[in-house]
Amino acid sequence: MSNTYLTEDHELLREQVRRFIAREVEPHAAQWERDGMVPRSVLRHMGEAGFFGLMYEPEYGGAGADALTNLAFADALSDSTFGGFIITVLVHTDMASPHLHHGGNAAQKARWMPGICRGETITAVAVTEPGAGSDVAGLRSTARRDGDHYVIDGSKLFITNGVHADLYFVAARTGEGKRDISIFAVEKGTPGFSVGRSLDKTGWRSSDTAELHFDACRVPASHLLGMEHKGFYAVMKNFQTERIALAAMAVGHCRQAIRLALEHVTTRQAFGAPLWDKQAIRQRLAMCDAKTRAAEAYTWHCAWRVTQGHDIVQDVSLLKSLTGELVNEVTATCQQFHGGMGFMTGTPVERLWRDARVLGIGGGATEVMLDEAAKRY
């Protein structure tokens, strides 16, 4: 489909990302699914290629680009059929490291941002807890000031990149108020910080997901990002970047599922003719494509509104709920048209269907997103 938001530079970036995926991801990612992680060497290569600092300051190795450029990257990245690889990258670029970009001071950025851009320092964001997911204000981890340190206690759950990250942006309660939450940069190896179980998931098999534990974890006060007690608002702000990236991922999964289904139904013979000759199949695929194109246009529109400085909370909440449900509908439909083969582990359409399920849950469950949007009417 034509896209009025894309420039020549965006197209060049997308082509570079797609070549990288074809060369260094798709031939090897099935093994990463079995290993439960994306090799660090691949992430370093992405950093060396300039993919990890698109929004960040050139002085730290970034490109100083805008939200549309960042979406062009996420859009091309989502041409991969391996959701675990995609989310490993997007957590680093769009969900974790932006906390440093938005809330970090000059000294903090100078310390960590160059390694982040080069793919040498991989990041994770630690907000979700056993009793607090979409309800960020309900988290129970605490951080208390003790001289020139903060002491963090608590646990985190479902943390993507949790096992192999180098730097974690951790949300903890620092006051009595419901929203008195702060964000801390915690380096792997900090005393009192440990990685618990590596979690086994239905999908996203090549992304590592973990529990994190903080037991009197002493973090220098200089690792506080932004102002004390203002971390709730930092999390809410970053959710908009995160949710646009997840929408791009969902749309990419839809596109790939439709492509695979078209390849299958135009060649698979049934009752003496290709499945494509069945009107019901043609029409259902056409409707999947129509909905996907509409969702794709809405995704780009939301990113454009970011560049214009608009309040996008309602739009992005609607976008996240729409795409999270749509990707499940489209991948299930396309899997259905593959028949029994679509239920075989390791086939691309089965993987897309499996990976799609979490997109209606992670980053803001559909019901929460719809309620956020409804509150703003």
Rank of each mutant, 00 (worst) to 15 (best):
V91A: 00
L359Y: 12
S2M: 10
E329Y: 05
L199W: 00
S97K: 05
L6M: 14
K237T: 12
G340N: 02
P274E: 01
P348Y: 08
C117T: 14
T7W: 06
G346L: 06
G119W: 08
L370W: 11
Q108A: 06
S78Q: 04
F239L: 13
S80Y: 06
A290R: 15
R205H: 03
A356F: 04
G84F: 02
V17S: 00
A171D: 03
A22Q: 13
M55C: 01
E367A: 13
L199S: 00
D66M: 04
Q336I: 01
S207N: 08
T81Y: 04
C302Q: 09
Q240L: 12
A107E: 15
A286E: 12
H164M: 03
L167T: 13
D311R: 13
L326P: 08
L157R: 12
R19H: 13
K188W: 03
L352I: 10
L139C: 02
E33L: 05
G177L: 06
H101F: 09
R144D: 00
R357D: 01
A273T: 13
T331L: 01
K201T: 13
G162I: 04
A96R: 07
A49I: 00
I244F: 08
L262A: 03
A107Y: 06
H101D: 03
E187P: 07
L260K: 09
A210T: 10
L100W: 05
M341K: 09
G340M: 03
V306N: 03
S222Q: 11
R351I: 12
V358A: 06
V151P: 06
D79V: 02
L225A: 11
G309L: 07
E296Q: 15
H264T: 05
N161W: 04
A132P: 10
Q16M: 09
K291I: 12
R268Y: 10
R376T: 06
A286Y: 13
V251D: 02
Q240K: 13
A76T: 11
V235F: 04
D75H: 14
F82I: 07
S41H: 12
G324H: 02
A273Q: 14
G272R: 05
G192I: 14
D9S: 14
A234V: 04
T88C: 04
C334A: 02
D75C: 08
V151Y: 04
H301S: 12
R18N: 12
F85G: 04
L285T: 10
E211L: 07
